[in-house]
Write a protein that binds this DNA or RNA. Structure first.
Lengths: 131, 131
DNA sequence: ATGGTTTTGACAATCATTATCAATAGCGGC
DNA sequence: GCCGCTATTGATAATGATTGTCAAAACCAT
């Protein structure tokens, strides 16, 4: 049976609040900064549970960290992420789904999963012009 | 100044031989199995050099390891990878390039880069078992 | 409130990767 | 070919994220 604990709620809420993608360690720091005595291991567990249940998305930062984010869209989708400020836009991508499935099929591959993420500079960061 | 050492050659050759994506640790094991006394740290350095020079592609496996591969196509391309045996097919993806650029533009993003990789089971691995 | 279980959290363990640094080995100049 | 300078190597320590351990605490149906 699955139980409801304030720790899980805290993680869920912190995720919602953060807005963009954040690491487990980062979330733990944020929670501690907010006065919560939650343990690091618990944050990892909660995040991985949320990800399993589809309540959170996860992806790997370019340097190998796992990042998490509360996703509003419940179905399968991808992300457009500002590499400067972290602003994230959820994007549906039927086009890409179809393409991935077709390409996999053409080469005899089955059980195709895919990783599709777009990184760029959002409008305001572009305007401000980053080096 | 950059020097040519048999170690770097060994890594380059092992990469060519391997065919698919392989981890630094895996390459090191393979080299040792072949009798080479090359050091692990050296393999890491050589791989990261090759990746910098564009002689190798690198990507992160779903579980966070960095994988490397000698890429035959010099230009921009993506990969279709067997998650069981590592067989890799290089795929051009004009469709996806166009899509990524368009989606980024629609949201005011600039300097869009993208990560697009498809993981699946290749024909022979599909035919053989796998639960 | 009670009991049976799940969950927590401090800490150890693991795993990939990077840094350290003395010893080694390319390479240009002789 | 031989010297010397310096980049490179490699054994090992260090790092940093993540996972495992397990007794104590918390949850929930009764």
């Amino acid at each position: 049976m699955k139980r409801n604990t304030w720790q899980r709620e805290a993680v869920r809420e912190a995720l919602d609040t953060s807005g963009g993608f954040i690491s487990a360690q980062g979330l733990h720091s944020a929670l501690h900064a907010g006065g919560s005595p939650i343990g690091l291991a618990t944050v990892y567990r909660a995040l991985s549970d949320l990800a399993d249940q589809g309540e959170a998305d996860s992806l790997q930062s370019p340097d190998g960290e796992s990042l998490y984010r509360a996703c509003s869209t419940t179905g399968h989708h991808h992300h457009l992420i500002c590499r400067n400020c972290g602003l994230t836009v959820e994007i549906g991508a039927d086009e890409v789904e179809a393409w991935a499935k077709r390409v996999a099929g053409e080469h005899g591959f089955t059980e195709a999963a895919h990783v599709v993420d777009v990184f760029g500079l959002c409008a305001s960061c572009s305007a401000r012009d980053i080096p």
